[in-house]
């Protein structure tokens, strides 16, 4: 178990990269792109097979975006949100396959995505609302800017650590359960149960990250 959390790193242009995380991310990206391309390869008016799956996700996220941001602005963010959900779902589930690990069990991935979301929130907040966006940090009274700043800083941290912690903990527990006993029966039962629960947790945390990203974006950009 001593290898948990120890990451193989590579140096490139003087920068350090977690090689395994990058490889797993590329694998996850490849899976998402291949599945999506297979699903939309022959789109029909009456859907079947993978088209149903991809349409179900797109329609569900469209509805959420429309409810949170309004139709026009919601649809502008739809490609980003759909990609985010599919990517996180694939990343979370990847770690449940033996010999693979989730890119999201690396804080670099989750914090990177969380910071990207928060950066987009502030960028589009300023773009769509201008001075009003700055002013809302000073409401209801000016001293509240401190609390609002803490909230804004907390957003990416909570977003990143929630996903990272859950996925890493899930994968650690899988390894721990495999080392509990030598008996094959008592070995398989909790592992299988935990694997099933991990699948559920993976889906739930992909949803939570996506929904919170949508909520943060909608606060900043929703149509008045």
């Amino acid at each position: 178990m001593e290898h948990i959390g120890v990451r193989e790193t590579v140096k490139f242009l003087g920068l350090t990269f977690n090689w395994e995380t990058l490889c797993m991310t590329w694998l996850a990206m490849a899976i998402v792109i291949i599945v999506s391309c297979l699903a939309v390869r022959s789109l029909k008016l009456v859907p079947s097979g993978w088209q149903n799956f991809i349409e179900m996700i797109v329609v569900w996220l469209h509805e959420q975006l429309e409810a949170m941001m309004g139709k026009k602005r919601g649809m502008q963010f739809a490609p980003f949100i759909v990609s985010l959900f599919l990517f996180l779902l694939t990343c979370n589930l990847l770690g449940l396959i033996p010999f693979l690990e989730s890119p999201t069990n690396d804080l670099n991935t989750t914090l990177g995505l969380a910071l990207l979301v928060v950066a987009l929130v502030h960028f589009f907040g300023l773009y769509f609302k201008g001075g009003h966006y700055i002013a809302h940090f000073f409401q209801p009274v000016a001293p509240f800017v401190i609390i609002n700043m803490i909230e804004e800083i907390a957003k990416p941290i909570t977003l990143a650590f929630r996903l990272f912690g859950n996925i890493l903990a899930g994968e650690i527990l899988i390894i721990v359960l495999l080392h509990l006993t030598e008996n094959p029966f008592w070995l398989s039962l909790p592992s299988v149960a935990w694997l099933g629960f991990s699948i559920f947790i993976s889906c739930v945390h992909a949803v939570i990250f996506t929904m919170l990203s949508m909520a943060y974006l909608s606060n900043a950009v929703k149509e008045e």
Partner: peptide, 15 residues
């Protein structure tokens, strides 16, 4: 165990 490095930027670019 937890180390923030250039992977974060790479992940953003990847995404």
């Amino acid at each position: 165990m937890i180390e923030i490095n250039a992977t974060m930027i790479a992940q953003v670019v990847n995404f």
